[in-house]
Write a protein that binds this DNA or RNA. Structure first.
Lengths: 111, 111
DNA sequence: CTGGTCCATGGCTATATTGCCATGCAACCA
DNA sequence: TGGTTGCATGGCAATATAGCCATGGACCAG
């Protein structure tokens, strides 16, 4: 992997990393296609407000969500409409994995 | 987020985490749709063989790749055909982000 | 059997991530 | 003006991750 490729894959890994946390996945699902304030997400997640704010900062710096400020409130929303493909991929991997585990269980019991 | 939801999102986060590393993204691109040995990936990545083996274990435990052993060689391949959607999503986020950064630069210089 | 190749794993250190608490700042209200 | 609300950030401790070296097991060639 040369230097150009390293830069390329690090940029992609940064985005994937931002998606690689249960709280952040929950937030993206919860926001879906509407705006959402930090306090709302904090209440739903049951985490400290500062923690939620930092999670949102990770998503923001990765370019996955955008923020709009109105008074003292920050409204976050998903800024790229491509996440469905990502979530679908996760579901497929889970489904494949369950299927394969069942197959290997069947093979074990039959042998 | 209740307990059931936590389990759900942790399972998805595990998969996303497995995808969230430049070396692992490179390996998935490199393997694409053909089998690949550990030594080949090690040579391409320029990392220690043990490091590559551990990266492959992460992908394997997430259900993203599968392994076939022939003699002393382990051949890995992508086991779920859904990664295209995932990679497309990463590309889109990058594209969105570049566009938005250019816009904000333009706004900054015009103000 | 001997030596060599291929791979997986344990051990270790360095770094990154995650959570909380405390604090700071800006906006709004009385 | 002083109090409250909503959010972001710094600091810290606990944990997780990533890389290397060393090792060991399985297989193959001679």
């Amino acid at each position: 992997m040369n230097n150009e490729q390293r830069i390329k894959y690090e940029a992609r890994a940064k985005i994937a990393k931002a998606l690689a946390h249960p709280a952040r996945l929950f937030m993206l699902d919860w926001m879906h296609d509407r705006e959402c304030s930090v306090s709302e997400l904090t209440a739903e997640l049951g985490l400290d407000q500062s923690t939620v704010s930092k999670h949102l900062a990770v998503l923001r710096e990765a370019g996955i969500v955008s923020v709009r400020k109105a008074g003292t409130t920050s409204f976050y929303r998903v800024s790229c409409g491509c996440l469905d493909g990502f979530f679908t991929c996760l579901e497929n991997v889970l489904k494949c994995d369950i299927t394969k585990r069942q197959q290997s269980l069947a093979e074990d019991s039959s042998s």
